[in-house]
Amino acid sequence: MRKSYIYALLVGIMVAWGLNVTALKILVEHFSPVTLTALRIFTAGVVVLLFLWGIGRLGKVGWKEAKQIGLAAMFSVVAHHFFLAVGLTRTTAVNAGLVLGMVPLVTALLAMVFLGQRPTMFRLLGIALGFFGVMFVVANGNGGLGHLSVGDVYVFLAVLAQGISFIMIKKATVDARVMTGWMLIFGSLWLFVLGLVLEPRGLSSLKEGTPLLWTIFLASAVVATALGHMFYNQAVQHLGPAESAVFINLNPFFSLLGAHWLLDEPVSWAQGLGFVLIVAGVVLGSGGMDDVSARFRRTNVATRGGRKAGMW
């Protein structure tokens, strides 16, 4: 699979995930958050497995693969979504957005530790620019930066859990798409149990759904969660966790567009500046400049070699 195609696919996924923030904001105002998340992720898992069955890629999973899937699901689905849900109840959206913007940085650091990847100057600069871009985007909302709270710690644990899951996906021997489907199913069941404990009236809140709300729910579950996670995890196996995670910096920008377009929320000049920094961070952090630099060096070496050969 060509890198240019994977990059375009990742941008599309970030559009879906960014708009999904607006969709979830609408949904959690009408349903219990943890119960809703469990149902949404379960629906996404079913869609992924049906898709793989339809294209003939849903093979048998052995015990070794099942252990990889179960362990990754505990981090990617259960821990990430649980800590994020709890954290958002105890901190501001601005602080949560800032902490979530650390996903690429945390993932890159974990890749250095567990995968032995050596970050280049361009990638480090890209991660830094993307991080500061996220700061510009989220720090200019109505809430301001605020102070560190217990909720911020929970959101950071969600970031850490997601970063760890990316490392596991990269090292797994099972196909990323198959792994995604079973992770979503396994994780949603655990979240459902947590929902029963934390939200005794969670299931009854589902009765308040309208056709419009369920349409938004299906769009979130199928497009953002099912297809988005399936293809993102496939990109992780092709590009690596650090390079793929850099694109997550695009999420705040598309979240802003969704909020402005669907909820009529204003977008400031500072948030536009943040987007410029984010794009620069993606270009550098994705490894694009490393490829250009490598080709430039190879061209110079070939040119010098040709000149030397011509001298003889």
Rank of each mutant, 00 (worst) to 15 (best):
A72F: 06
L184H: 08
W53R: 15
G56T: 11
V137G: 01
L145H: 05
G285D: 07
L213W: 10
A242L: 04
A302D: 11
Q234W: 14
L124C: 13
L218R: 00
V236L: 08
S244Y: 01
V137K: 03
D264H: 12
H260L: 00
H81M: 13
V197Q: 10
A73V: 09
T225I: 11
M121G: 06
W17S: 01
R118P: 04
F192E: 00
E65D: 15
R304N: 04
S204D: 14
M1L: 03
N140R: 07
L115Y: 10
M74C: 12
A44T: 05
M121C: 02
R298F: 06
T215F: 13
H30T: 11
D152L: 05
L198I: 09
R177W: 04
F247H: 12
L71Q: 04
M230L: 07
G116Y: 10
G258N: 09
T89M: 09
L198T: 02
K64L: 11
V279A: 02
A73N: 12
F217L: 09
V236E: 06
A224E: 03
F136T: 06
M135I: 15
G70M: 11
L58G: 10
G116V: 00
G151C: 08
S205E: 03
T215M: 14
L212R: 13
M102A: 15
L257N: 00
M311S: 13
L27I: 10
T43A: 12
V77T: 13
